[in-house]
Write a protein that binds this DNA or RNA. Sequence first.
DNA 1: ATGCTTATTGACAGCGCTGTCATTCGTCAA
DNA 2: TTGACGAATGACAGCGCTGTCAATAAGCAT
Lengths: 353, 353
Amino acid sequence: MIVFPMPKHPSDKTGKPGRRVTLADVAREVGASTITVSRALRRPEMVSEGLRQRIAAAVETLGYLPDPAAQALASRRSNVIGVLIPSVTNNVFSDVLAGLYDTVGGTAFNVQLGNTRYRAEVEEELIRIFLSQRPAGLIVAGIDQTPASRAMLAQAECPVVQIMELGEDPVDMLVGFSHRDAAQAATEHLLAQGYRAPAFLGARMDPRSERRHAGFRAALAAASPEGAAPARELTTTEPSSVRLGGVLFDRLRERFPETDAVFCNNDDLALGAQFAAQRAGLKVGPEVGICGFNDLEVMSAAHPTITSVRTFRRETGETAVRKVLARLAGEEAGPDVTDLQWKLIPRSSTDRG
Amino acid sequence: MIVFPMPKHPSDKTGKPGRRVTLADVAREVGASTITVSRALRRPEMVSEGLRQRIAAAVETLGYLPDPAAQALASRRSNVIGVLIPSVTNNVFSDVLAGLYDTVGGTAFNVQLGNTRYRAEVEEELIRIFLSQRPAGLIVAGIDQTPASRAMLAQAECPVVQIMELGEDPVDMLVGFSHRDAAQAATEHLLAQGYRAPAFLGARMDPRSERRHAGFRAALAAASPEGAAPARELTTTEPSSVRLGGVLFDRLRERFPETDAVFCNNDDLALGAQFAAQRAGLKVGPEVGICGFNDLEVMSAAHPTITSVRTFRRETGETAVRKVLARLAGEEAGPDVTDLQWKLIPRSSTDRG
DNA sequence: ATGCTTATTGACAGCGCTGTCATTCGTCAA
DNA sequence: TTGACGAATGACAGCGCTGTCAATAAGCAT
């Protein structure tokens, strides 16, 4: 491998091994200009066959890797796809993330995560910061941005995808499903199974949870036309957990002893409710129905198995990234709104036997 | 707000609203040079009180945000802390991530995630790519990098933290605990509780799982000095899941009917094993002991509650970032190796009553 | 008053790359 | 033969910021 002298950065007093291999190095190696090498890498069809191959070889032997900072500065466009989600730990979002990372992996793009911690003002600040990086794309959870956030997203010079929900007017693109419909269907399932007094259990009531809550209410209202359905509901702002599901279940039975089924805002709560029911000596299914939301893997493995509403979280991440990439490639990115649906999965926990 | 004319980028044919506010804009506003504004932002103590305040005010009114790409290019150092983990979904890592994001949030740094998918060659490639971004720091899971990876990490001009394990010679810094010791203690607990024939259940046997496996064996070997302890073990390379825990448990009982306790490689398997035991009509605790690993939240909420080894995952992420930040700030980053320990949490699932 | 610090500020160049606008050269219809 | 044209390549400037070094002002002991 031939080493060429090179002007050093003022601060580079030493001839450290870490010296960067630049486009210029590759260009010199093949006797072309930097811009041609740049093109060979980004728009190969613009460079003649022979040169292109020699450049590829030189890139390989020299171990050239582009500097994303320089690329971003010169092209006014970074390779970062910003992703704003309210929680990193939440199973729901970690599945979405897995889909995102899988789809973005292998491309020249990078995911940059922003944790909004369920707070609109944090989201607003993060949008501002992300936008200052001239991102390649932006993916944000939910459709309930502040007006300021919406304005920034609308003006953004990159594809924007809102995910996890459905809505009337997406800022740009939208991938999700109707939480309301899904919850309504789940509640209708409980009623159809013969449960007379279903209750709602909710924790961390974010906008999506609220919509599920609304779906629950709608189903109940439809079932008792006189509108006299009592509100058996227990919600809290605490973060959701299995333990909390148990606590809420016990409290619910205390307050509404007639309860014979629970629709839980998410699977953690449902699992906790099931454990609590078992502790109380109740037969889950025959004596108390339990339905979760999201259909985490554990639901199908629990004993008894737990009914839930399957949501396509991984697919949400994949689709969102694909839409961004398609738009960047100038292709049609498909319809602005993609409904990923949901699917009720009835299991033993709502089987009255 | 005063708007100054400014030379446009060649490609900026329109006077779009999105025109960037630069250091130069702020400098003009306060009548100082760009470099002074830059200093006021990065090393406030070098700029006089009055100027500093006027600059701060101008930054505020103009809405100036630094361009990370330009900063990275000029300073030869990006604000990215690279993080390499084998899985995004795995609960274990998502807790670590939560710790990372929490600690890095609010600083000027950004986390960039790389998913190695449990593959050393992918890790190697990602290290190469990350390094080409001149990261502010690098955090990698495990201590089993390939020689090439190790070499790159050793030469990296940034703090490097290996996490999740303990080891003899960290590349730079290390935060973790001894999987072997923890597993050995868990196995000893089973024996101390009076279980005679404990088995090992493992899935996705990565290096950490192997070390736990070794700990299990060591405990058994110590308990039967003649060395005649039969190997009741069932492992698979499949990714771990609750369902798989059940499958393995059933298979285990078929193959080694005398088994009266299982040490599971992780909590998902343990939970699945418990469900399977219950399905088989076994009383968990008295008839079969179950012990997990990691102590996910669900373990303390399950019915019966499940014994596990608590590991400090969130703290791992926090500590790793703090070490990077301390090093970058020029402070002592503490000892090179931080042992975060582990803690056995005995619960009903290993209580023979 | 003199020389010498120390505290502030600025000029300048350049980080590594890409957008834009030439330039060169061979091809081909007229 | 000539002009037009497309393909391939290059020159140049500049993206927004910071490292380095120089300049100036201010403070202070001698």
